[in-house]
Design a protein around this nucleic acid. Sequence first.
DNA 1: TTGACATGGAACCAAAAGGTGTTATTTTAT
DNA 2: ATAAAATAACACCTTTTGGTTCCATGTCAA
Lengths: 106, 106
Amino acid sequence: MAAAEKHDVFQAIADPTRRQVLRLLSEKERPISEIAAHFPVSRTAIAKHLHILSEAELVSGRKVGREKLYRLQPKPLQELQEWLSYYERFWSNKLSILKHIVENEK
Amino acid sequence: MAAAEKHDVFQAIADPTRRQVLRLLSEKERPISEIAAHFPVSRTAIAKHLHILSEAELVSGRKVGREKLYRLQPKPLQELQEWLSYYERFWSNKLSILKHIVENEK
DNA sequence: TTGACATGGAACCAAAAGGTGTTATTTTAT
DNA sequence: ATAAAATAACACCTTTTGGTTCCATGTCAA
């Protein structure tokens, strides 16, 4: 699995399991086993997903005793929002949609 | 390459080349060769990217003569925005951030 | 009608993704 | 001191990704 280059936010959220992991961590900090219990796959598989999320800096983990508690780190999602904001003009405002059509047809 | 299941928006935007293709198409309709000219990869590679974007319904193509013109189809990006809107509470409002911290610590 | 242009599609390839199971390592509780 | 719990770290496997090259098909223009 270990990627040559670090994963970014776009890659991190591409996988449905990882999106669900983010949801779980948005509620509260959780250890890896507790997360894995929500999925039909092995704990090892979830550990790898957490590693990818961690590379994208979407989660951080702190060790407490023998557990490692993972926590959501939402900042990188703002990058996604910025990327998306460019495209908002295509639906958020009827006038800008019309403008775009006129641009294309001329 | 043809995937077993259709690609969704999240997978479609995971690749930087595909994101750049979307940008190009956001300016105007373009034929495949014109798109490919912007990238260091082959036209065939771009054709595959367009196929994936097409599965995610982020682009549509219409044939005009011997050309096929691709156009941005922004609707699926709204699904992404909805997904993202859930996480906005983690940064958009200082009060809700504090609330979240308090929730976690109690 | 015969090239030249534009796209489509098959066959192939290396590497990455996503998964498994097994074996350490660390830490807590008895 | 030792067993159980939680996680880390391998080694391995299969499918998907992202790319290539080569060949086929359709279309326009001379």
